[in-house]
Nucleic acid binder design. Structure first.
Length: 125
RNA sequence: UAAGUAAAUCGCCUUAUCGUGCAGACAUUUAUCGUUUGUAAGGAAAGUCCGAACACCAUAGUGCAACAUAGUGGCUAACAGCCACCAGUCGUGAGGCUAGGAAAAGUGCAACAGAAAGUAUGUACAGGUCAUGCUGUAGUGAAACCAGGUAAACUCUAUGUGGUGCAAUGUCAUGUAAACCAAUGUCUGAGCGUAGCGCGCGCGAUGUUGGAGGGUAGGCAGCUAAAGUUUGCUGGUAACAGUAAACGCAGAUAAAUGAUAAGGGUGCUGACAUGAUUUUUCAUCGUCAGUAGACAGAAUUCGGCUUAUAGAUUUACUUAACUA
RNA sequence: CGACCUCUAGCUUAACUGGUAGAGCAUCAUACUCAUAAUAUGAAAGAUAUCGGUUCAACUCCGAUGGGGUCAA
């Protein structure tokens, strides 16, 4: 797995997202929160990920876009470390719960913590 | 030199590495995937306040109502926009601002004060007269008879406006409609749709049975070549128009246009150096350090308006002081 | 993306076609009580969301801006 984040790796289906928020499990490390659901896709991609920032916390579209971009960047860079040997197909949605604009380093460290927690959680089940 | 007025322009740059959307090419090939080339956010992309294009609803009809606009002339596809001029008003001035038609068509409104508030005419004093509610002054009030004020009160005049919006609309796949078609029962002449009402136009309404099949944030089209951009010339006071050449300039949809590092430039602050002046203050194509970089993210497309915006630059002009 | 509504003391609200902003609860003070509550009496607090315009006069009419909310697949 490379450090890419192309269109295919993105979570786009509205139905799946609705289903995920209804049935999916969640793990959170402030200021991030991961909602996930085990499903099956038509292509070979193991994990499809979406990113979301609430309008409540960031009113200006510029700030929202920036946080989303930083999160995508952090996901892209750290993805191979955690999910190279991953076998089940999963849908992810990463939410940003914080209220202040973060730096990339902060998000990276938090995301690493988040994925560690996710691995523990999935082993239990 | 200082303070200002108006108009216009710009809105940090470069390199490296890793990534994203779209389009093309190559190889492989059912496709995916891979390599590579090109391209990728603003002056307001914002607010959604006007005007259009485009689509559907009768080829979008008619009367009333409703709404909008309002000096004069011009520009424009159109406009509540822009330009020029007039008038009023504010400013010493350069200039700014103005919903700036009609009160002699009609209806209304004017608290308090005041004799009286729109059918006027009381008191005191003075003048005048044979005499008088004839004339002037005083007092109240924003306004006291003036063809008064008020039309961002109703109204009148002129001009304009059909409605809904790309979540319009078309189409493909899946195949459970209240929508469609046929038969039949019941009910009436009323009702439903078409913008608020009438006309006009279209449709009877409802239950049962049968038939046929298409709606959905699913895909595709619409979707970016356009009242296009830049430069020059010509006409016009100007807005603008004409013409020639060049350019080909985002198209996403849980929504691309990013991240990291280094260097440079600009502004500000401090220190040093130099010069003028000499406790201090001012200046610099000077050196070093620190720090700052606003408002803000395309979503069918254009023309405007409004609002937000660190800072930088240019041009023209005004006022004041000084020097020649 | 589009269509609409609303904003008045700390809170909930009045003010009818313009005439100068009131109530209730809460707050403060006093009385009653050993003290508190309840009760009674009194007091204070609004540039009517902001800015501008029309008018003699604006919560009211008009425009712009801002905040809050609703609807439509």
């Amino acid at each position: 797995m490379d450090t890419t984040y192309s269109k295919k790796e993105r979570l786009k289906s509205k139905k799946l997202i609705d289903k995920m928020f209804l049935e999916g499990r969640s793990v959170s490390v402030y200021p991030l929160r991961l909602v996930y659901l085990e499903t099956s896709f038509n292509d070979d991609i193991m994990i499809k990920t979406g990113v979301s920032v609430s309008r409540r916390h960031f009113k200006s579209a510029v700030d929202r876009n920036r946080v989303k971009r930083l999160m995508r960047e952090a996901y892209r860079l750290n993805k191979p470390i955690f999910f190279n040997n991953f076998s089940t197909q999963c849908a992810f949605m990463i939410l940003y719960i914080g209220t202040s604009t973060p730096t990339l380093k902060k998000i990276e460290t938090k995301m690493n913590l988040l994925f560690n927690k996710f691995h523990e959680d999935i082993k239990k089940n």
